[in-house]
Simulated assay, not measured.
Amino acid sequence: MADRDPAIRVTAMPADANAYGDIFGGWLMSLMDSGAGLVAARRAKGRAVTVAMDGVEFHRPVKVGDEVSVYCTMQKVGRTSMVIATDAYPRERHSEEEQLVTSARFTFVAVDDGGKPRAVDA
């Protein structure tokens, strides 16, 4: 994925892990949601909220100290919604090699100040 910039990049810390040193899946899903949310907000030019997450599958553990990069691709833009393909790639601290750990599709809806759906291109 070195040919494009991640939406977000974070180092996994001990507070994010279980007793075996593996990062909690919920922490990783939260990071992916944050990355996709940044992409959605830029596309919507304002607030966008997560309404669904599909297809999450964990392929291998993420360890404390791994640098996790989240890459996002806009797949579909509807009137008020956006679907964003999101992939997480950890790499060891002293390595350049990234390996896909999980993928998911996030659906966001653009909302106004009152929390009501609004047109993405408004």
Rank of each mutant, 00 (worst) to 15 (best):
Arg4Val: 15
Ala7Tyr: 05
Ala7Trp: 03
Ala7Gln: 07
Val10Tyr: 07
Val10Ile: 15
Met13Pro: 05
Met13Leu: 15
Met13Gln: 14
Met13Glu: 12
Asp16Glu: 11
Asp16Leu: 11
Ala17Arg: 00
Ala17Asn: 01
Ala17Pro: 00
Tyr20Leu: 03
Asp22Trp: 05
Phe24His: 14
Gly25Asn: 04
Gly25Asp: 00
Gly25Tyr: 02
Trp27Val: 11
Met29Tyr: 02
Ser30Gly: 10
Ser30Asp: 05
Ser34Thr: 12
Leu38Asp: 03
Val39Gly: 05
Val39Met: 06
Ala40Ser: 11
Ala41Asp: 03
Ala41Val: 07
Ala41Arg: 12
Ala41Cys: 12
Ala41Pro: 02
Arg42Gln: 10
Arg43Ala: 12
Ala44Ile: 03
Ala44Asp: 05
Arg47Phe: 07
Ala48Thr: 06
Val49Phe: 04
Thr50Asn: 08
Thr50Pro: 01
Val51Met: 11
Ala52Ile: 08
Met53Val: 15
Asp54Gly: 01
Gly55Leu: 02
Gly55Ile: 02
Glu57Val: 11
Phe58Ile: 08
His59Leu: 15
Arg60Glu: 09
Val62Trp: 04
Lys63Val: 05
Gly65Ile: 07
Gly65Gln: 07
Asp66Gln: 07
Asp66Tyr: 04
Val68Asp: 00
Ser69Gly: 15
Val70Gln: 02
Tyr71His: 12
Gln75Pro: 04
Lys76His: 15
Val77Ile: 14
Gly78Phe: 11
Arg79Trp: 10
Arg79Lys: 15
Arg79Ser: 14
Ser81Cys: 10
Ser81Ile: 09
Met82Arg: 09
Met82His: 13
Ile84Glu: 01
Ile84Leu: 03
Thr86Val: 09
Thr86Asn: 03
Asp87Phe: 04
Tyr89Gly: 01
Tyr89Glu: 07
Pro90His: 09
Arg91Ala: 12
Glu92Thr: 09
Arg93Asn: 09
His94Thr: 13
His94Glu: 13
Glu97Ile: 14
Glu98Gly: 08
Leu100Asn: 08
Val101Trp: 01
Thr102Cys: 15
Ser103Tyr: 01
Ala104Tyr: 02
Ala104His: 04
Ala104Phe: 02
Arg105Asp: 05
Arg105Pro: 01
Phe106Ala: 08
Val109Gly: 05
Val109Pro: 01
Val109Asp: 02
Asp112Cys: 10
Asp112Val: 10
Asp113Tyr: 11
Gly114Asn: 12
Gly114Glu: 09
Gly115Trp: 08
Gly115Val: 08
Lys116Ile: 10
Lys116His: 14
Pro117Gln: 10
Arg118Asp: 06
Arg118Thr: 04
Ala119Glu: 14
Ala119Cys: 10
Val120Ser: 06
Asp121Thr: 14
Asp121Pro: 07
Ala122Gln: 13
Ala122Asn: 13
